[in-house]
Amino acid sequence: MSSPDHKDWLVIEALQRGIPLMDRPFAVLAEGIGMDEGEFIRRVGALKERGIIRRMGLRIAHREAGVRGNVMVVWRVPPGRVEEVGMLLAEQPSVTHCYERPTFDDLPYNLYSMVHAADPDAAAGEVRRLAELVGVSDYQMLHTVRELKKSTPIYRQPEE
């Protein structure tokens, strides 16, 4: 898997400015970096092919879009069951993210998941169902009290 070359980086930086709502949006972005539209589109396709672009799409402002039931759930899974439980959680449509993370004495959870439901009540019910399904009773729901920041990561071409 090769890393992006200089021209790929120009394309990546252009895309991060946002795809404009115009008839030929890629032509506009390409012009900004002195590339022709055809090459720009080919490079975007290749970046997606290589998995550097994970997903080609817009972001939704979740709360406004009616996704108020999202909750972070952390699980303390016996070490020998992490893989099995992680894979089982990953299969559930309500689970949007699931990661294994390091533990600390006061943070003994090794699996972190985001569970998505229509509202907080539905989320609580879904989490109970998941707990039963995976057979893990040591878990905690970390409800969001407030969103303090939400932004898009900024990627810049490394200096030579």
Binding site: I12, L15, Q16, R17, G18, I19, L21, V44, L47, K48, I52, I53, R54, R55, M56, G57, L58, R59, I60, A61, E64, A65, T152, P153, Y155
Partner: peptide, 9 residues
């Protein structure tokens, strides 16, 4: 309702 229209890297 929607934020930016740009790829997820």
């Amino acid at each position: 309702v929607i934020r930016d229209l740009s790829p997820v890297f």
